[in-house]
Amino acid sequence: MTTPLTLDTIGQAPKALLHDHLDGGLRPATVVELAAEHGYDGLPATDVDELATFFRTAAHSGSLERYLEPFAHTVGVMQTADALHRVAYECVEDLARDNVVYAEVRFAPELHIDGGLSLDAVVDAVLSGFAAGEKAAAADGRTITVRCLVTAMRHAARSREIAALAVRFRDQGVVGFDIAGAEAGYPPTRHLDAFEYMRSNNARFTIHAGEAFGLPSIHEAIAFCGADRLGHGVRIVDDITIDDDGAARLGRLASLLRDKRIPFEMCPSSNVQTGAVKSIAEHPFDLLARLRFRVTVNTDNRLMSDTSMSQEMLRLVEAFGYGWSDLERFTINAMKSAFISFPERLAIIDEVIKPRYAVLIG
């Protein structure tokens, strides 16, 4: 008998996560404790529940720029090696409890050097936290693999330096590179030297595109920068026309992305909060899934969106009537699109994801 789809049962399913920001997933209690330990006095509240409410409501702004403002507080308490290690460790712990079996967690090292750490020291601390978290999860009977993406801020001028950091740590847990931040006025082509460096070193990268800005952002990310994946990419819907008879006609860019199997790192709740879409029910995720684009489900910022992978999947189930086979497909889409090696991807798909979904499907 097929297992009913509820938050609890979805919580039992194995999940793969490609788009999760380390500084957007802290526990509210950890933010309060780290602020007290390190003398950060800028928090809008020191009560844990009040602070959680602040992050949730401040992020639900309808604007990407305003959505990013609360990150000043999480980044503010992540300026020491101990703090970075703790946040990374707890990130793995929280994901493992939600039965995430593979995750790529991203963060911007350049935002964590105000306390005097070097970029290398920042990455070392985070990778150490991830490794310790994996070990603790395994001891608790939960196997999880966590890898890192280093991100450059698109409004800054350090992307080439951060790309080199990604390559330098590629054998120690960093599997790729990304640019993030406000899209308007900061096109990905401003960072061509970083992407060229990644390609010249046979390294992988994703680009935030098509979230707060339209098709030109996606076009540049693919045509000029050569992105392996797209962060969000919701505005690709602008290149898809639905005829009166319900048939979909794809423009040249949309066709190219589907033909090349470019993965979309879609983050439904976050996209509603930033105003990229009006509601989950109006999210283009379902249209793209039905048209067989390679869509994946992601959290983006678990603290800001008050969410988890299980919650994101449940919201899609409630909006679009998905079943277990759909959730399995989205999960396999993510594993196929991961930046680890092919044998590693295949092992997780064949030995973890498919067997455990078989039990849930019945």
Rank of each mutant, 00 (worst) to 15 (best):
T2R: 13
T6S: 15
I10V: 12
I10Q: 01
P14D: 01
D20C: 15
H38R: 09
A45K: 13
V48E: 14
A52M: 05
H60Q: 14
G62I: 12
E65Q: 13
A72R: 15
T80N: 04
A83E: 03
H85K: 08
A88P: 06
Y89P: 00
R97A: 12
D98T: 04
D98W: 02
V100S: 05
R106P: 01
A108K: 08
P109D: 01
E110S: 13
D114I: 07
D114F: 05
S118L: 10
D120L: 01
A125T: 06
V126D: 05
L127T: 10
C148V: 14
L149N: 08
L149V: 13
R154E: 00
R154L: 00
A157Y: 00
R170M: 12
Q172M: 10
G181S: 02
A182S: 07
Y186C: 06
P187D: 06
P188I: 02
T189P: 02
F195R: 04
R199W: 07
S200Q: 15
T206W: 04
G210A: 12
F213W: 09
F213T: 11
A223T: 14
D228L: 01
V237M: 08
I242T: 11
I242C: 01
D244P: 03
G246L: 02
A247H: 09
G251V: 13
R252Q: 14
R252T: 14
L256K: 10
R261V: 10
R261Q: 15
I262G: 05
P268G: 10
P268A: 11
S270F: 00
G275F: 06
S279D: 12
H283M: 05
A289E: 03
R290Q: 15
R294F: 07
V295A: 08
L303F: 01
L316Y: 03
F320Y: 10
G321E: 00
Y322Q: 02
Y322G: 00
E328I: 03
I332N: 01
N333F: 01
S337V: 09
F342E: 15
F342L: 13
I348H: 04
E351H: 10
I353F: 07
L360V: 08
